[in-house]
Design a protein around this nucleic acid. Structure first.
Lengths: 195, 195
DNA sequence: GTCTATAGCCCGATAGAC
DNA sequence: GTCTATCGGGCTATAGAC
């Protein structure tokens, strides 16, 4: 298992739903839904199965759903919030991309939504992931329109930027080298600024 | 399970390693490694577990490894072969992108390498996937250099194009709409032509 | 080269004590 | 809110007949 997860497994048990959720976030991020077993979950949280069912009566599916929702919250609080700051387009885009760099730790960590999307996943998780992506595209396109872009060009540019970010994370993981992520963000910045 | 896999499950049993491999390719593409159980594998191939162990003594791990290798073969025979055709850069890029469209069925089907990469996967599978991506980048960058690009710019452009393709597949899947894939290919074409 | 039958394990999940 | 103990079942894998 990954270094991040090993570290969690060594830590004292998680206290309270929020801390459990944070650890589940890291687990599903690395393994996806099918790849996370209940014993993995017990390992990273430091809790036994019955305690986990106390917090998430719906079991693994409810945990994944909660993680998908928390991913949407995290995106909103960081990446989307950066788009709302007042200022020029270039500042808002720059702030969003800084938040993206932090979210994915400069390309060294996968996207939890992408991990949860692959393979057989509970319907609620797929729907939450779709909503998250749609919201990101809409808010980014909205910021471009507010700063002078046409609606259709803005939608395309926003979708392309998010695809580049997600794709570069995959390439970075395949190559075992985060450079492609960093280069992708450097390429996305001027592309969004000049739409 | 997906329509593609249901259809395979209804078909007569697979005959010979090659046909089995083709069906495993489609299964792992949809479910990833951890998401595919032996009973899923038995279902789509029409064979019982002992027959599958006859062809793949190493079990599920060996099957996934064989699929990862066959993905590299398929990429070479279609996408990379298109890059080798004689002609102008624009023709070779266009031919590659047509092969990509076909490989991913215009954005309606996931990339088997990306599916196999996520989550806990046998080491040999991760390594095969890394080799495939590296080879794609190198061959695409090579074609750009042959037609006049500088080596470093070519490497960046090739990496970015592949990231856009992969990312747009993810976005397409999240949105349940292949449009983002089609638009990504339309954007990649001029980006590669003018490097 | 396919099958039936089965091994042994770990899966997700629960009862009930504290 | 955590645990020990345990359930039924599906998991990967194999023995051995045909």
């Amino acid at each position: 298992m990954s270094a991040v997860l090993d570290k969690l497994a060594m830590s004292p048990p998680a206290r309270g739903r929020e801390e459990i959720l944070g650890r589940l976030f890291e687990l599903f991020r690395e393994t996806g839904y099918a790849g996370a077993s209940m014993s993995d979950i017990a390992r990273v949280t430091g809790l036994k199965a019955p305690s986990l069912y106390h917090h998430f009566p719906g079991g693994k599916a409810e945990m994944a759903e909660a993680v998908a929702d928390s991913a949407a919250d995290a995106l909103g609080a960081t990446v989307l919030a950066a788009l709302d700051a007042p200022g020029e387009r270039s500042e808002r885009i720059g702030a969003m991309l800084d938040a993206v760099r932090e979210l994915y730790e400069n390309g060294r960590r996968p996207c939890v939504s992408a991990s949860l999307m692959l393979g057989p996943t509970p319907d609620a998780v797929s729907r939450a992931t779709g909503r998250l992506v749609r919201r990101w595209i809409d808010r980014l396109a909205g910021a471009l329109v507010e700063t002078g872009a046409g609606p259709e060009a803005a939608r395309r540019a926003a979708t392309d930027a998010i695809a580049r970010i997600q794709g570069s994370l995959i390439v970075a993981r395949a190559l075992g080298d985060p450079t492609s992520f960093q280069e992708a963000l450097d390429a996305v910045e001027p592309a969004l600024s000049g739409t």
